[in-house]
Each structure stands twice: as C-alpha cells, then as structure tokens.
C-alpha cells in the first residue's frame, strides 16, 4: 500500500485525439453517481412514509366515490328520458355533471342503471348487447366486463362491481334516476343508507331496517313509481 495520494478528478483528462466515443464514455462515467445500499434504505423509508400518508388520506376520504353525490346525502331525482326500448341503453350524467352513468333496458324489460366509470382505471363503460347471454357492460380499455343484471365483475381487471344508479319508470314511460348505491351494495341498502340520514320518515315508510316506524305526512309522488 502506498500513501501517495492520487491526483484529483480534475487532473483526469481524456487523451487528446481519443475520439468522440471515448469523450462520450468519459462524460457518462463522470455524470453517473454511486447509490449505496444506505441510500436505498433511506429511499425505501421515504417511500414507505409516503404510502402511510397515502393510506391515511384514502381512509380520511380524499378520493371521490364514483356515482356518489359530492356533498353526501340524497341526490336529487332527475328525469333522464321519455322512454327506453328493450335492448337499448342511454348515457346520462347522475348525480353530478361529472358522474357518467348508463341505463339499460334488458330484453326481458328489466330496467337497470349503473355508473359508467370503470372501477379499474375510470374508463368509460359501454353497453354491448351483442356480447354475453343477455348483453354485457364492457370496458374497452382493459377488457373489463360487468354483468348487466347485477353490475358485478365477470371478467377482467376491475376490482369491484359497478355502483348502481337507481332508475325507475313512471306510469307514462318516463325514466328517472332517483339515487345511487356503492359497489356491491343492494338498491335497498343504498337507498336506506341515504334516506336514514336526511329523510327518516320516508325511510320508515319504505321499510328500511333501523328506521322509525312513524308515517310521514307528505309523500313524494315518485314513491309510487315502479322499479322494474
């Protein structure tokens, strides 16, 4: 071993006439920096802290649930069409103008509605009546497929079913959207969850579990509508 100190980095020069290739190699070597395992450990700790903060933010409600009113509560009823023939679909916005939704009249006359925002990466979900046994809700981005009758995932990468949009048909054939549910939630549970907070009288009238049993004096005319 020798104590002769090596020259400083500035003394290392590319030999004259070495060519552009060697000069480029010299530049690349000089530009790279050494990342040690201790540096990696520090980076990993930083990433871990970021994930923890992200988890707290998610649990605290920083994300917007698709198909849910921005301020919570019961969304306002909205007329979306005068009629819908069997096998056809209708795109609309509900409950907010940013919430894409789709209503579908199945071949047997059933009327269903869902959020049209794919639960995978929020692409638009399309109604494809030529696919599946009675049509499918199809996300073309990553081949996600949802059952047309329940909204549950039948194929592809979406992690959960589509939130429902409760659509009802009036006696005159007009179609209204009157509420939303969350993924995997039944229509009854979703409506009762929203009604129990703001309209407990109506919740009791429609038989929501946990609601008071007194009758409400005023009744919304759409209560009489038929959900098919």
């Amino acid at each position: 071993m020798s104590t002769v100190q090596p020259p400083s980095p500035g003394d290392i020069e590319t030999p004259p006439g070495a060519g552009d290739a060697q000069a480029a190699l010299h530049d690349r070597i000089s530009a790279d920096s050494l990342t040690t395992r201790r540096d990696y450990l520090r980076i990993v700790a930083t990433v871990s802290g970021g994930l923890a903060v992200g988890g707290l933010a998610v649990a605290g409600g920083v994300l917007h649930r698709h198909g849910e009113p921005a301020g919570g509560g019961v969304p306002q009823a909205k007329k979306i069409a005068d009629g819908l023939p069997p096998g056809e679909s209708l795109s609309f916005r509900y409950p907010g103008e940013e919430d894409r939704a789709v209503a579908v009249r199945l071949e047997d006359g059933s009327l269903v509605g869902y959020s049209a925002v794919c639960t995978h990466l929020a692409c638009a979900v399309l109604w494809r009546k030529d696919r599946g046994r009675e049509g499918e809700l199809y996300c073309p981005c990553h081949e996600g497929i949802f059952d047309a009758r329940t909204g549950e995932v039948t194929a592809g990468p979406p992690p959960r079913g589509l939130p429902k949009v409760v659509v009802v048909e009036e006696q005159n054939g007009s179609i209204w959207a009157i509420g939303t549910t969350r993924s995997g939630e039944s229509v009854e549970a979703g409506l009762c969850r929203q009604l129990l907070d703001e309209r407990p009288d109506f919740a009791a009238r429609v038989g929501c579990p946990g609601a008071a049993t007194q009758q409400a004096p005023g009744v919304d005319p759409r209560q009489q509508s038929r959900q098919t």
């Binding site: 998610v58 649990a59 409600g61 994300l63 649930r65 959960r160 969350r182 993924s183 995997g184 939630e185």
Partner: peptide, 8 residues
C-alpha cells in the same frame, strides 16, 4: 384500503 373505501 382504496378498494374497501370505495366500497363504503
């Protein structure tokens, strides 16, 4: 966490 929160 995200999935469960989105499901309510």
């Amino acid at each position: 966490t995200v999935n469960e929160w989105m499901k309510g």
